[in-house]
Computed example of a mutant assay.
Amino acid sequence: MFVTASIVCYRNDRKILLEAIDSFLNSKTDFPIFLYLVDNSPTDELKNITSHPDVEYIFNPSNPGFGAAHNIAIKKAMERNSQYHLVLNPDAYFDENTLQNLTHYLENNSAIGNLMPKVLYPDGKIQRLCKLLPTPYDWIGRRFNPFKGMVEKRNEIFELRFTGYDTIMDVPYLSGCFMFLQLDAIRKIGFFDEKIFMYGEETDLCRRLIDGGYRTVYYPEIHIYHHFEKGSHKSWKLTKIGMQSAIYYFNKWGWFFDWGRKKINRETLKALGK
């Protein structure tokens, strides 16, 4: 067995990025691992962040986007005959046993195309990153709705908060901060959609995995940590990018008459007793 990972960089805080790199490289495993650093920054100042022999640094200043940069690494991973590939955010980190435990779980559950553990803030509070497939309101309306009570009521369902986040469950939309992918599934359904620059590429991939007959699973027996800065909520430039991604996504899958979304969300809620 062989497991690879990729981190896409862009002018990152070196300390936080190194925490993510080291958490992968310091994993205790009974199989070999290899990491790709795809640097979309305008300069290669991150090139010397590590000299580890199991890391390949790829300078990519054209900055084609998050998914496109990960695709570069995933294709290289496939050439190395990797079985599983971790898409890891530069602000996420985990302990030395995480990778081994998640890999063995995937080995015993071959129908899973994407696996995400419980995600915590550094202070230990849980991040609600399990979601239904989004409607236009979920991705656009919630962002600008001034009535917080309405937003929270929708979040209870959309973010599956009613589940308590303490049981293994099939979730149609898992966060892109930690996507543990079965590469045979990616060979079948395709790579990240490179027309999505950033935000929403993980939603699109999860949906295509489900359509391809694979499961997308939340596994709370294992946890990781994620700083989760919510850049799109702090920058109008990133908000604009997020809006463009949402428009592309809904043009692709459907805005208000998306029967596939309705079916998947209905089946998800029914399985969860809602």
Score class of each variant (00 low, 15 high):
Arg80Ala: 02
Asn97Gln: 10
Lys230Gln: 15
Asp170Ile: 02
Gly213Glu: 15
Ile126His: 14
Pro117Thr: 09
Leu183Asn: 01
Asn251Lys: 13
Thr43Ile: 07
Thr4Val: 06
Thr239Pro: 00
Phe162Asp: 11
Glu45Val: 13
Lys148Gln: 12
Pro146Tyr: 10
Trp259Arg: 12
Tyr121Gly: 06
Met179Leu: 09
Pro42Leu: 09
Gly260Ala: 08
Leu25Asn: 05
Tyr173Met: 04
Thr4Glu: 06
Met116Thr: 15
Ser62Tyr: 10
Cys9Tyr: 05
Glu45Leu: 07
Glu19Ile: 13
Val87Pro: 01
Ser62Glu: 15
Arg161Phe: 08
Leu120Gln: 12
Lys15Cys: 12
Trp253Leu: 14
Gly273Cys: 12
Leu37Trp: 05
Leu17Ala: 03
Asp138Ile: 00
Lys47His: 14
Thr29Asn: 08
Tyr84Trp: 14
Lys234Trp: 04
Gln127His: 13
Ala20His: 02
Arg80Cys: 04
Ile168Gly: 02
Phe180Thr: 10
Met78Asp: 05
Asn145Ser: 11
Leu88Gly: 00
Ser41Met: 07
Lys262Thr: 11
Ile33Ala: 00
Gly200Trp: 01
Val87Trp: 02
Glu202Pro: 03
Ile196Ala: 03
Leu25Gln: 06
Ala111Ile: 15
Thr163Ala: 14
Leu238Ala: 14
Met243Glu: 05
Ser232Met: 06
Ala92Trp: 01
Asn155Leu: 02
Ala69Glu: 01
Glu19Tyr: 12
Cys130Asn: 15
Ala92Lys: 01
Lys234Phe: 06
Val151Ser: 03
Lys28Gly: 07
Ile189Val: 15
Val217Ala: 03
Glu96Arg: 09
Trp253Tyr: 15
Lys28Arg: 08
Arg266Ala: 10
Ser82Phe: 07
Glu79Leu: 13
Ile140Arg: 00
Gly190Tyr: 04
Cys206Gly: 00
Asn63Ile: 07
Val55Pro: 05
Gly141Glu: 00
Tyr248Trp: 13
Gly67Leu: 11
